[in-house]
């Protein structure tokens, strides 16, 4: 465990909590892509099946359980509790365009051809593209609430810190996981355009709106 990994996990948790607090306080999930949140719930579910097979550490177990619970609460808030405020009209990204290639690729390129490994690989590939429905929604409506941009910033920061974590682990432990690293780099690239807008607009006190 290194500082980049801890900070990465903390910013991941912070992102998830920011989103929950936003929905809870405003009693609205306007501007949030329910599809992205369903994908994240699916990511955690398929990745953390090892909760039943492998014990890594108390930290690892507790964090996995928290992520799972938060992901399902978020989906519940969007599709049940505050359903009336959900902007399904603009959440129109076609999930099959992500799910079909990701499923295919997880069968083709994995560490071993076993159900748990294929599901783990599926979750890694899916996480790398899960934010696309949210980014698509923002580009479609041309704007995002400031709190939503904070959510995206911490989610992107988590990915960037994980890359630093992998560089660190490679140098200190000679450890690297090619599937996680390649997917993680791809995922981080998706946030670059958003990071640029966040720094040039949101941090200067302006609302994020696209021309």
């Amino acid at each position: 465990m290194n500082i980049f990994r801890i900070l990465g996990d903390v910013s991941h948790l912070l992102a998830i909590i920011i989103l929950l607090v936003k929905i809870h306080r405003s009693k609205s999930c306007a501007g949030i892509s329910g599809k992205s949140q369903i994908l994240f719930a699916l990511v955690f579910t398929t990745r953390y099946l090892d909760l039943f097979t492998t014990f890594i550490s108390l930290y690892n177990t507790v964090m996995k359980v928290i992520f799972l619970i938060c992901a399902y609460i978020t989906v519940y808030m969007i599709y049940v509790k505050f359903r009336k405020t959900f902007d399904s009209e603009n959440d129109s990204f076609r999930l099959e365009f992500l799910l079909v290639p990701v499923t295919g690729l997880s069968f083709l390129e994995n560490h071993s051809f076993t159900p748990l490994e294929i599901l783990w690989t599926f979750s890694i590939y899916l996480e790398s593209v899960a934010i696309l429905p949210q980014l698509f929604m923002i580009s479609k409506t041309g704007e995002a609430e400031t709190i939503t941009t904070h959510y995206l910033f911490f989610l992107g920061l988590y990915r960037a810190l994980y890359i630093a974590n992998w560089v660190w682990r490679y140098h200190t432990e000679k450890f690297y996981d090619q599937i996680a690293v390649v997917s993680g780099v791809v995922q981080t690239i998706f946030y670059c355009d958003f990071f640029y807008l966040y720094v040039t607009k949101v941090l200067k006190g302006k609302k994020l709106s696209l021309p």
Binding site: D50, T54, H111, Y162, K174, F175, A180
Partner: peptide, 10 residues
């Protein structure tokens, strides 16, 4: 190299 069954990252 890595232990296949043990994915220790979140």
């Amino acid at each position: 190299s890595m232990d296949l069954a043990k994915h220790d990252e979140l």
